[in-house]
């Protein structure tokens, strides 16, 4: 459910579960992490994309049905945290094609992107507190991407925003009119980046990590984990499969 392909100097990793809106499973997150770690660390650009109409609708919460103790949710959160962390540690530029939707865990992945392209009608955000789930796992990455003020609003507002609002608040860097233009544009940007001097890009990425580090990433994960399997989550999470999405 993770596909890797090379387009010349662009290394593309795709979420390939279009029939489920690329909803993330623990296995997908494990494969995604491996794919990111396998990416070349010089001379290329990474393009992260989702096949089909939307980039990623978040965790596949239907899997949590079978594990009321929260084992699945725990591995989803840990897997997500690991994926975004390894994305952030890459020395090659990361472009994300976020067409259609980047919701909850899917929105969290944006925290690992250097250049994020979306479209005007896309839906982005973290509407998971309504399910008794804390999105805190992605807060440290979101705060680095869009600033602590925007992170606070997005994490607590419990709703979705469109692509233009995402552009305005720093969650995306380009917003196109049409969803079908997002992937070609992101690929084009990744090609432009891959053509730039690799050592200068790597030095710049490392320097930015040094002067603007992601802080409290482990605290974010633990805040989310602390609620897993608790009374509130057990009561609220079934909304995810009892209501149509």
């Amino acid at each position: 459910m993770i596909r890797t392909q090379a387009h010349g100097d662009v290394w593309e990793i795709s979420l390939a579960r279009a029939e489920k809106r690329n909803a993330l499973t623990p296995e997908m997150l494990a494969s995604l992490k491996q794919a990111i770690l396998a990416a070349p660390n010089s001379g290329k650009a990474l393009l992260l994309s989702g096949e089909g109409a939307v980039f990623c609708a978040g965790f596949d919460l239907s899997l949590c049905k079978e594990s009321p103790e929260g084992e699945v949710m725990r591995s989803l959160l840990i897997g997500l945290h690991a994926c975004v962390t390894v994305l952030c540690e890459l020395d090659i530029p990361v472009v994300i094609a976020a067409q259609g939707a980047a919701i909850a865990g899917g929105c969290a992945v944006l925290g690992g992107g250097d250049v994020i392209v979306t479209n005007a009608d896309a839906k982005l955000g973290y509407p998971v507190a309504r399910l008794g789930v804390s999105p805190a796992v992605s807060a440290p990455f979101l705060a680095n991407l869009a600033g602590v003020g925007a992170a606070r609003v997005r994490q607590l507002e419990n709703g979705l925003i469109d692509g233009r609002t995402a552009l305005a608040c720093g969650l995306a860097h380009e917003c196109l009119d049409r969803a079908e233009d997002v992937h070609p544009r992101a690929l084009d940007l990744a090609r432009q980046l891959a053509a730039k001097p690799a050592s200068a890009l790597a030095a710049t990425k490392r320097w930015l990590r040094e002067i603007a580090p992601i802080t409290s990433a482990d605290d974010g994960l633990h805040a989310s984990l602390s609620l897993v399997g608790g009374e509130e989550e057990r009561r609220m999470l079934p909304f995810a499969w009892n209501t149509s999405r």
């Binding site: 530029p93 994020i116 869009a146 730039k196 930015l208 002067i211």
Partner: peptide, 15 residues
């Protein structure tokens, strides 16, 4: 970074 935040700075400097 201080002017536009880390995320936008990353995009601007790398592009």
């Amino acid at each position: 970074v201080r002017k536009v935040g880390a995320g936008r700075a990353r995009k601007i400097l790398l592009i």
